[in-house]
Design a binder for these strands. Sequence first.
DNA 1: AAAGTAAATGATAAATTTTACTATTTAACA
DNA 2: TGTTAAATAGTAAAATTTATCATTTACTTT
Lengths: 141, 141
Amino acid sequence: MEKAIEVLKKNHYKVTKQRKDLLEFLNKFTVQYVSINDIADYMRSLYPGISNNTIYRNLKEFEEIGLVEYQEKDKTLVKYQCDFEHQHHHHFVCKNCGKVTELKACPIKFFTDQLPGYTVEGHALEVYGLCADCTKKLKAE
Amino acid sequence: MEKAIEVLKKNHYKVTKQRKDLLEFLNKFTVQYVSINDIADYMRSLYPGISNNTIYRNLKEFEEIGLVEYQEKDKTLVKYQCDFEHQHHHHFVCKNCGKVTELKACPIKFFTDQLPGYTVEGHALEVYGLCADCTKKLKAE
DNA sequence: AAAGTAAATGATAAATTTTACTATTTAACA
DNA sequence: TGTTAAATAGTAAAATTTATCATTTACTTT
């Protein structure tokens, strides 16, 4: 949490109550995504008249400075990004329980090899299915 | 085009004028994506009172039977999928000219290896940057 | 500590995107 | 040609996101 606030300061963003509370809530979601709706509900419980603007803008700003990630396939879902170093990685998302598993290896060379002369600036990747726990559970049934 | 209509028939969809015109328009976008807005503008030019419903529903149905693909990062963009065999592949999207290059190799094994016990049902991948032509052009400047 | 300044927020509204509903039309098929 | 089920139009509304601007607040400087 203090780290996140330092990131805010380093990027010349003001540390407001709203942002602190938003970060504190987001902090619970490092292992799975949370919907913007749920975030809005929470923030409205603290600030009954909070503006949509404030929520959407802050999430977008948090993303820009690496505090938040949007899910690739569904931009209404976000998660907290505790890895401030922007270490490159991808996600496996369990369709059953929603758990997110980080994938450390990255196959980008795999693709650059297929694209001679191209400038590869980035890539988005998400793998989905069932995590080990859910695979077991659903097999048992 | 005839192929696409056959696909419609095989899936027990009716071949309506709207669907034929929609497919004909989509057929122009096999190499880059087109926005749903542009599609709607075109369809409205033919059918002034066409319902949004018709456009959105048909695009969704076309996707289900493999005639259309949505862009991973932006679901308001779609392209025609001429490869009816559902052959698995990924896309490189040029940020400058919008051209889409198909990537034939697929690194899924790369990830399944990292996920013992998991059930991997699918994955979404998109690589982006500049295509070879745009790389050359922009370097020259 | 107080004042000044720029940024953030609230409140409201609107724009955009997507979905829902139902009567009518139309394609498929006998 | 008539029947039937699916598709569409027309309308509306839901849902999501962005815009505007006056007010408030965090940060800085004195």
